[in-house]
Design a protein around this nucleic acid. Structure first.
Lengths: 332, 332
DNA sequence: TTGCGCTTCCAAAACGTTTTCGGGTATATT
DNA sequence: AATATACCCGAAAACGTTTTGGAAGCGCAA
């Protein structure tokens, strides 16, 4: 059936030890025998079994991509990060297997056990929320991990996220430069770490660029389209004089714009809008959405790179912030 | 370190054989010892090593998700399918590991070898094109596989795709029912299997519902936004009297609509438009796009199910067509 | 001759499971 | 009393690798 190292050894007239050494570039094997072994291996189309190798080496060159909530929205985000993770992990010679918290939860098993059973060398966590019970596990376990979009740092757990506070600052600064005097903020969900940071950036920027910070100008929209509509309505009811709004997500921003259309408010003339994320939609919606873009693909790459460094060089995990970028279109 | 089956055996005062049997529900182990073993295993938080098990069982309960071109567009499509695959595979107790043709190609290794080296039990292929050299491998290899969106059928290879010809028929029928008399078709790429099928459906439906089929009414737009713009311009140049257009993708349809806006053509009054795919964008664009939706998630599920049936019950692979669905919005 | 250091190779153990085959008891059958 | 029949259980082999601890050969110095 399968051609094993034993077959190669027999065909080359050496021991399995020598075959292993020859193929793995070990020192103590004669040059001519090495060549012969390599030749024979190619001849037989020999592929070492990753499984067997994993068993003896006690590492699988396989890392898990733990996704907390596969189904729910966030398509773009998760996908791009996933691709980034895959690409750079592949570069380093690692495979990636999908793990969803749902299946782990369903089997009533801690996610660490789930990963250990599969011999995963490490795990990249994304889409997890601050109030998820798995968070504790992530930071406490000795399984090397890096979390995306949640600032968790411990002995074996690093994180990478966009620089949300600066992203929010860019948004506000841009609104101000466009002449906005009274700027509102439609935030996402209070429990989300990114929301807190964006709020901080918003507040700092407002203090810096316009002066007083009026906390009645921040409302919450739950990251959804409808939430954006509702939240903007609420904001305008409280403060009819706002002339610019920063939304913590593009989806909410689009909802807000829909609300504006319904109410006869002109964007950006009556109300300037800037979103967050730069989802595909942003360029297609009319008017095209000005937004601050997250480097989704790069986040995946960075997370993968950090994990590999932890694994291979024993580096300590760290927290990395990736710079967002303001994309100016038509709404502000 | 790791708690193995031996530890459990020792703690329970039985042999490893018995532990294995007890935990795997084999028949010949006394009920009391079984309970004792289970108790001890839970006590020690024992998790069988999937790696060791894979080695001896010669199957990994792990299937590969081969993505031909991760980066390029198709975000929504690939992501939804991926989630569907993952969900149902998880249900059946299989893990899924990501495989991109790029990495295989880069290592100058056939994708089958790539999968075999990793001990994958089967593979689900998506995003592959008809002219990809891997196609031959897929149909000829004995590695169980199912392909998405490409009608490849062989002893070990099945496929699942949407019923593109009926999808196209729905589109045409709807345009006709809206009163269109002269209907154009902006197809994708000539080499894509789906394009051929949609063309067939279009032609059949035109013959059935309007009468003569004029092949000058079909142009190609390469599935891109710009391609859609160009193609529609070309179509209108050749036949200014078309009053309805079916686009083989939403992206092209949106491009076409942009072209209409630029030319002062009213949609749907002057020109009715229906797209294909139902990407997220479709509902947000103005006017909202009428389109025929592909059951992306279900395609993933179906593919996974077929593969599992092949693996577990030795079923022969088959070709399944999933019904698309017309989503009527504002453009037609 | 002996001893020593190189180089090149190998036998065997180990990784953590499953499974085959057979051994031992107790109970039922002749 | 002998034998068959269940029923439990265990020793050992197997899966395909890597690695440890020598061993054999050889040249060279003492």
């Amino acid at each position: 059936m399968r051609v094993t190292i034993r077959d190669v050894a027999r065909a080359a007239g050496v021991s399995v030890t020598t075959v292993s050494r020859a193929l793995n570039g070990a020192a103590d094997v004669g040059e001519e025998t090495r060549q012969r072994v390599i030749e024979v291996a190619k001849q037989l189309n020999y592929r070492p079994s990753h499984v067997a190798r994993s068993l003896v080496l006690r590492k699988s060159q396989n890392i898990g991509l733990l996704v907390s909530d596969f189904r729910k929205g966030g398509h773009h985000f998760l996908y791009d990060v996933l691709v980034g993770v895959h690409d750079t992990l592949a570069e380093y010679g690692y495979d990636v297997t999908l793990v969803s918290t749902d299946t782990a939860r369903q089997q009533l098993v801690s996610y660490v056990d789930f990963c250990r059973a599969r011999g995963l060398d490490g795990v990249i966590v994304m889409g997890i929320r601050l109030d998820d019970p798995y968070v504790e596990e992530v930071v406490e376990s000795t399984l090397p991990s890096v979390v995306i979009d949640l600032p968790l740092l411990s002995r074996h757990c690093g994180y990478v996220m966009t620089d949300n506070v600066n992203g929010a600052r860019y948004a506000v600064r841009h609104l101000v430069s466009r002449g906005c005097k009274r700027i509102g903020f439609v935030n996402g969900a209070a429990h989300a770490a990114v929301s807190r940071e964006r709020l901080r950036g918003f507040e700092e920027a407002v203090r810096q660029y316009v002066g007083a910070f009026d906390e009645r100008l921040v409302v919450y929209g739950d990251f959804t389209l409808e939430g954006g509509q509702r939240a903007l309505a609420e904001l305008l009811a409280k403060s009819p004089d706002v002339d610019g709004v920063f939304f913590a997500s593009d989806l909410m921003a689009i909802g807000g714009i829909q609300h504006c259309k319904a109410m006869g408010i002109r964007v950006p003339d009556d109300l300037a809008v800037v979103g967050f994320d730069d989802i595909d939609l942003a360029r297609f919606v009319t008017p095209a959405l000005t937004t601050v873009a997250q480097p989704r693909y790069e986040m995946g790459c960075e997370a993968a790179k950090m994990l590999v460094h932890m694994l291979q060089k024993g580096e300590m995990p760290s927290g990395t912030l990736l710079p967002p970028q303001l994309v100016v279109r038509e709404t502000a």
